[in-house]
């Protein structure tokens, strides 16, 4: 447990009264790696970040960040890390430059650097022109970029980014992705990135952990995880919602079949895309009128679906109908895979 520039976590738990927000997670992040922590809202991502950044004591388990134990050497952890937390906590009355000078002083940078470093960072995050404007007038993307700059003031070796692109437009999101990728690629920075966006995890992360209800359900590189699902899926929505059950029965001959709450039926094609013609013939034979039919190459959403039985869409999960259980948040709680129709 002492990777000098990495992160190691063993059995980390955080209990809030009756809720076990983080339920015994284990993970390792190698130095220079971008580790994506993917999961829906309320999965335990931010609680994990708060513990790893020393802002929340764990209930049980242990973790080291940059070679420092998060409980016994919190100050050592804080010296090693930069963090942009979920809430972009900026003072609307201060300018971008004033924020960076404040941060530089509080981080104990030498006097000369307190003057020079803000300028360098403002340029790096593309805020030079807005440097002397009050942050209250910044757009969401500008605030996120300043937040990233603030996390980098003291040149940390490990960076925590908690949902850094939530609420951003695609242009701002892409710009932030490029900067994060550059930090890891060119500066060898270790990045622990939480996200609810599948695309973000797919594009940025060298390795991924998918967390659901406080537990890591699967871990690996995006390619490895998608290879686990291994086959394309076809998602069909019947024109008549009442035909959902007969659709499920018709499709069950092709592979694992999940009935989603939006009346769609999703089936993995065990023999690949060549089975699509058979699917159409089966639909015809069963006299099912198709509203929508889509063929998907394996995605991280399929991985999430395969591991949790639910889909992840913009941070919200949509549940699969399993043994009559209601989806998450509607009174029912289900663990494990979607019911196989076979």
């Amino acid at each position: 447990m002492s990777q000098p520039e990495g992160i190691e976590v063993e059995g980390l738990v955080r209990q809030f009264k009756d809720v076990r927000a983080v339920d015994g997670i284990d993970l390792e992040v190698a130095p220079g790696e971008i580790y994506g922590f993917l999961g829906p809202n309320g999965a335990g991502k931010s609680t994990t970040v708060l513990m790893l950044t020393t802002l929340l004591p764990p209930t049980a388990g242990r973790a080291s960040v940059g070679g420092h134990d998060i409980v016994r050497d919190g100050a050592g952890v804080r010296r090693s890390i930069g963090a942009a937390l979920q809430d972009v906590a900026l003072d609307p009355l201060l300018t971008g430059r004033e924020h960076l000078k404040l941060q530089a002083t509080l981080q104990g940078l030498p006097r000369g650097e307190r003057e020079s470093r803000p300028g360098e960072l403002l340029e790096r995050v593309g805020l030079s022109e807005a440097a002397d404007r009050r942050v209250g007038g910044y757009s969401g993307g500008m605030k996120r970029r300043l937040d990233l700059g603030l996390a980098l003031v003291h040149q940390p070796r490990i960076l925590f980014l908690d949902e850094p692109t939530t609420g951003l437009d695609i242009q701002s999101r892409t710009a932030l992705w490029e900067e994060v990728a550059r930090l890891a690629r060119e500066e060898g920075m270790t990045v622990f990135l939480t996200t609810q966006y599948l695309e973000e995890a797919d594009v940025l992360a060298n390795r991924l952990g998918i967390i659901d209800r406080g537990k890591i359900v699967v871990e690996g590189t995006p390619a490895e995880l998608k290879a686990r699902v291994g086959r394309p899926t076809v998602e069909i929505i019947p024109a008549d919602p009442d035909e959902k059950e007969s659709l499920r029965v018709a499709m069950s001959q092709f592979g694992d079949c999940a009935v989603l709450e939006d009346t769609a039926v999703s089936v993995g094609l065990e023999h690949g895309e060549a089975q699509l013609a058979e699917v159409v013939r089966a639909l015809d034979a069963a006299a099912i009128h198709v509203g929508t039919l889509q063929l998907h190459a394996p995605t991280l959403n399929d991985v999430f679906l395969a591991e949790t039985g639910r889909k992840l869409e913009g941070g919200q999960v949509t549940g699969a109908a399993v043994d009559g259980a209601a989806p998450d948040g509607a009174g029912g709680r289900r663990r494990g895979r979607a019911r196989s129709a076979r």
Partner: peptide, 13 residues
């Protein structure tokens, strides 16, 4: 309320 306190807490303040 804004979380600025957490930002300060992450420094050697």
């Amino acid at each position: 309320e804004s979380g600025f306190f957490n930002r300060l807490a992450l420094t050697p303040l």
